[in-house]
Design a protein around this nucleic acid. Sequence first.
DNA 1: CGAATTTCTTAAACTAGTTTAAGGGTTGCA
DNA 2: TGCAACCCTTAAACTAGTTTAAGAAATTCG
Lengths: 194, 194
Amino acid sequence: MISKPLIAHFESYLPFEEAEKALIESRVSRRKVRHRELTLTSGEICRYYTFVVSGCFRMYITDAEGKEHNILFAAEGDWISDIDSFHATTPSHSNIQALEVSEIIQIAQEDLYHLYLNILKLDRIFKVITEEKYVELQNRVFQNISSTAQQRYLSFLKQYPNLANRLPNTQIASYLGITPEFLSMIRKEITLGH
Amino acid sequence: MISKPLIAHFESYLPFEEAEKALIESRVSRRKVRHRELTLTSGEICRYYTFVVSGCFRMYITDAEGKEHNILFAAEGDWISDIDSFHATTPSHSNIQALEVSEIIQIAQEDLYHLYLNILKLDRIFKVITEEKYVELQNRVFQNISSTAQQRYLSFLKQYPNLANRLPNTQIASYLGITPEFLSMIRKEITLGH
DNA sequence: CGAATTTCTTAAACTAGTTTAAGGGTTGCA
DNA sequence: TGCAACCCTTAAACTAGTTTAAGAAATTCG
């Protein structure tokens, strides 16, 4: 059962019958990813919905000046895909890269559509998953607009307590939209007790 | 048929049978909203999924210092609700306010759940709607992290060409995360041809 | 293990965006 | 129709965050 972690994830939303689990098992693939390996490159079409079994990924965009900007992180139990590119079958603007040795389960476009047709509750589950991710992003937009870099860093620490220790500061700075130098200052100020 | 604009919206995704339309009609309400009226106040639970028939709304949050920050706008054909508060039945952190005289169609929590149970394709439609809104937000996060205020303003103009003329600059500045004064400077620079 | 690369820190000079304040223009409604 | 509330602009002083540079510490990989 390569899909065991994925099915456990689905069953945290709704129960599944054996036949449904077997259908899912027949339509997914699983593989290991090396540290720094790109699973999606800008310009390429995002062909898979990807579930992270273990490890950690970032989605980032390269701007006009060649600078990279992290949009989100995904660790064990998260999904990471360019939803826009996947559904519209258009070239992606973003890149997805492993930040650790990782393992993923992937569902190709036609397999996901096949599953949607044959297991109707998947529509509901992915509706809920997308709503959850939407709420997260909305909080992020609010933080970006209304907070100083220090407040944003503190709320990053709250939201991803496990990632904070695993990720290099350069990745966190890129997520916060500041320079690593300034993040270094912020961390110093915080430990000095401001 | 008070729900006519809403059903037209749903049918832009999938066709509906008469019985389904009648069920929807029986489960929604429609009303007019005055300019500046709040349809959701921070601290209150978001009880309705709201579809904008005409007019325009903003969702905003008030920060620790009492400043308001616009998270998104919604005009004709858009949905505006605090998804988190609605589903979790918890007090909302945000406010929703009409920026023009408007008209809305609302679906209460129990009615929406009743519709989900009886019209399965609504799961799929709201899955897709949420995915679309997610992609929009993701672009906004990218803009916020990677662009100067001027670039963000230009991309706001592209994304909401019709809203740009309808909204006061104060609202746009709050959406961009800058002061109205600085937006004023940006607009001057742009018309001078930079 | 040791060399190469990546990562973190500090600090000084700089720039994008804020704050405050003041004046003029619009809009809405009694 | 007139006044209050809102909205936009300009400008000067200020502050949060960037840039550049250089050295120290930690990882990675042959």
